[in-house]
Write a protein that binds this DNA or RNA. Structure first.
Lengths: 149, 149
DNA sequence: TGCCATATTGTAATAATTACAATTATATTA
DNA sequence: TAATATAATTGTAATTATTACAATATGGCA
């Protein structure tokens, strides 16, 4: 899955008249490098090391701004954690219930429009799957072999 | 969209060996009647009127139990509100960004499995759309006519 | 009926998020 | 380059949702 480059995002910000402040750039840059769908906490901890003056409020502010202008997407797959993702092409999110990792997968919801929603204006489409990822599945198998359950 | 009857749910609970306590029945009954995908707060307020001894913690406990045994589904379409829904057939949720109402719509994600997830064990599938519902769209049109924008 | 296991309650802790006023930084213009 | 207006950032405090836990109450079965 192709992710946007940092430079292309900067141009987009400029074109929208958004100031390229130091902290904003840091948050944005982080999102173009960490594809693990980080939480606010993770972003804050990672950036706070090199920029000790960064506050968590600013991370919230920046993310909300980036979401508003459509550069970042909110992932509400779980009710106790909000995650963030650089906006890319149509893709769904799979969360492993065992290791907690979130995987992207391609899905096309546009080719066959929902008849029931003909007269609705659709702005966002999110697809969330949950289950067990292959890596955890094979670990479970190994455990079974070892303990001979 | 067919919803399960209260009686069929009671049988399911019994078959799982879950006690049919007063409060549990009340919460469950409420969910079979209110299809607006209520929040914990809404359920608590509605039931607290007739059962003043009901605590919000009990509503949480009961909902978590019902989710665990698969009778109730969590809707995380928005990051600041968790909603609950009696489990039914495959359906997606559309949230109107103007009036906040959540609409169900039928969607079949099982007929064409995702190639990328061949080796994943999928337990849940959620589809969340956001946008403007027809009723709000027509209100916007009327406003435009009135103010001649 | 009486007992035991479980459900419920209520308070308090935790955690996520937002509000807001004071301060600081930025970009622009002279 | 310096002054200025505008916007960003900070930090604290408030708000809200959710969970933990111990004490109490209750339901179901012998």
């Amino acid at each position: 899955m192709m992710n946007p480059t940092f430079e292309s995002l900067l141009n987009l910000l400029k074109s929208k008249g958004i100031r390229l402040s130091h902290h904003r750039l840091k948050v944005l840059e982080y999102l173009t490098k960490d594809f693990s769908h980080p939480t606010v906490e993770q972003i804050y901890i990672a950036l706070h090391e090199e920029s000790p003056t960064l506050s968590k409020t600013t991370v919230y502010n920046t993310l909300n701004l980036l979401v508003k202008i459509g550069l970042v997407r909110v992932i509400n797959i779980e009710d106790n954690e909000t995650r963030y993702d650089i906006t890319t092409k149509n893709h769904g999110h799979f969360k492993c219930e065992s290791c907690g990792k979130i995987y992207d997968f391609g899905i096309d919801l546009d080719s066959s429009p929902i008849e029931e929603l003909k007269s609705f204006k659709i702005n966002y489409k999110d697809v969330y799957f949950k289950g067990i990822c292959p890596s955890c599945l094979s670990n479970i198998d190994k455990t079974k072999l070892k303990t001979e359950e």
